[in-house]
């Protein structure tokens, strides 16, 4: 008697993902985001000329999970190192993989100026509103009222401000060509995130300018929630403070500069008005911006 087994491959490990078990906590989104980045690199056929830049934070070991050339750099400086790599070898595809502490706090200057200069690399940011690796301290993207080790009574905006809107800030820079915010937590959102990553890497391949995707994800352990509660929190609460959408998609555009008044003589021509007209800050929001689940 013979038994015939029919196998149908529904999903497989992307070639750009190394066959490794990650160290990430149960329910953490880094593993999903790694996979999406690897799938996009595979789809574009660029693995053999891609170099990743690992930051400091939970994703410091990202290089163990990608089957790609990688360099690990100081906290916050991934955009500077990516700038050096890409400037040295423009034929490479370069991406940074950073968390919210790395990009939105200590590395603010580096990421903003990379966008200002229109550096031709892709920045991927996993925003989970907390410092995970160091055990759960407030980050610049911690939500108002959120309890962390360093905000035991909850983040008080009156004392320490509101969450830092990274995607919107970067999208406002003329050197940025693609900036989006997506989230993880359900299949539809994951597919949208993959689409955004694909567009970001394509923008780099086209040599257009700076591209960045901010991905909202959870940190169940430091949030003190179960993975499913944490996913629900992302979909319900995080998106209220961090609207999803594409904040920039188009060629790098110099900002509109007001005409000199002509009659003022020397010294007035340098006054640039606030008129922009580039669409840089016009988010093409998906859904209402109040949760798109």
């Amino acid at each position: 008697m013979s038994v015939t087994t029919k196998e149908k491959v529904l999903a497989r490990r992307p070639d750009s993902l190394a066959p490794a078990v990650t160290h990430y906590c149960p329910g953490c989104g880094h593993g999903v985001l790694h996979r999406l980045v690897a799938e996009v690199i595979d789809e574009l056929g660029i693995a053999e000329r891609t170099v990743g830049v690992a930051s400091v934070g939970c994703s410091v070991f990202a290089y163990d999970y990608f089957d790609l050339d990688f360099v690990q750099v100081p906290h916050g400086r991934a955009p500077a190192a990516a700038t050096g790599l890409k400037r040295a070898r423009p034929d490479l595809v370069v991406f940074t993989y950073q968390g919210d502490g790395d990009m939105a706090a200590i590395g603010t200057a580096e990421i903003i100026h990379a966008a200002v200069r229109g550096e031709r690399f892709t920045a991927v940011m996993y925003n989970n509103s907390i410092y995970g690796m160091t055990g759960g301290q407030m980050s610049p993207t911690t939500l108002p009222g959120m309890v962390t080790d360093t905000t035991p009574a909850g983040r008080d905006p009156a004392e320490i401000g509101y969450p830092f809107l990274v995607a919107e800030t970067l999208a406002a820079q003329p050197g940025a060509v693609y900036v989006a915010r997506t989230r993880l937590g359900d299949m539809a959102s994951i597919v949208k995130t993959r689409r955004a990553l694909l567009r970001a890497f394509k923008a780099q391949l086209d040599g257009e300018g700076f591209s960045m995707v901010e991905v909202l994800g959870s940190c169940p352990v430091n949030w003190g929630m179960s993975p499913s509660e944490a996913n629900a929190f992302v979909a319900r609460e995080m998106v209220r403070h961090f609207p999803l959408g594409v904040f920039r998609d188009g060629p790098a555009t110099p900002p509109a500069v007001a005409e000199a008044d002509g009659g003022g003589g020397r010294g007035t021509g340098g006054n640039v008005s606030a008129a922009r007209g580039t669409g840089a800050q016009r988010p093409a929001q998906e859904g209402t911006g109040r949760g798109d689940a």
């Binding site: 360099v71 400086r77 500077a80 050096g84 400037r87 070898r89 200057a109 580096e110």
Partner: peptide, 22 residues
């Protein structure tokens, strides 16, 4: 390529990136 960085901190890390590229 000459590039003026946003800070000395950024400059040394640009050096790190370029050096990693050989």
């Amino acid at each position: 390529v000459y590039l003026q960085a946003e800070s000395e901190v950024a400059a040394i890390n640009m050096v790190l990136g370029a050096s990693a590229a050989g």
